[in-house]
Design a binder for these strands. Structure first.
Lengths: 107, 107
DNA sequence: ACTTATTATCGTAATATTGCAATATATAAA
DNA sequence: TTTATATATTGCAATATTACGATAATAAGT
């Protein structure tokens, strides 16, 4: 037990859950907000800004990258992470589709 | 370690993350979709429909209730869970606000 | 080549989540 | 009141996540 039974759900259900899950941590929400405000970022800034260890920030960035939300560009000896706006919008649309088609009133 | 450092984030960041997190499991996505299609549901249906044990379904329903997404009405000896459309829409709006204000292009 | 600065990865401890059997609770029907 | 049915709760095992120190990898400047 303890393992999510991915195989009993549809691919779409798993995908939707995955998007939600990646966004479901306050550090990742904060990272996205910060990057958006700065219009760029280097990971080192984030460590100071967010207040988590560098290794932890790096791990969160990796998860955001895993669903394509962030693009990382090497800029000299630092990394420039930025939001992949196309992907961002695509995921927003997916989630809205879910919200709009899963809304029924019975009682 | 291992504990999320809630106190270093804003209330809004924690709330947003909590909404995302609750939706971040395929069983809960599937439950919402099923309830929406049926316009009602009793938990027993869900056990057969989703394919998880009754105790597990009950736990997932509890989490969905925890952010106000589901209303449960006792109907005879069974429960009638339905989507709280007002809350549903409110959360959708919150998430869209986040998506719309956290979208910047730099590279 | 050496040093410095930045980010990634590894290993590990603490905590959280998932899932289920067993049990408790509650209501309806007999 | 007993029995059957439906849902909730408890306890526990397996797995996942979070966080961080230590260390590796990479690139720039000296």
């Amino acid at each position: 037990m303890g393992i999510t039974k991915t195989q009993i759900f549809t691919e779409r259900q798993n995908d939707l859950a995955q998007f939600f899950k990646v966004l479901g941590h306050p550090a990742r929400v904060a990272i996205l907000q910060y990057i958006s405000n700065q219009n760029a970022c280097i990971c080192n800034d984030l460590v100071e800004e967010i207040g988590l260890a560098q290794a932890t920030i790096s791990q969160h960035l990796k998860e955001l990258k895993s669903i394509g939300l962030l693009n990382g560009e090497i800029e000299g000896k630092s990394m420039n992470y930025c939001i992949n706006v196309e992907r961002w919008t695509a995921i927003q649309n997916e989630l809205n589709l879910f919200f709009n088609t899963t809304k029924s009133n019975c009682c």
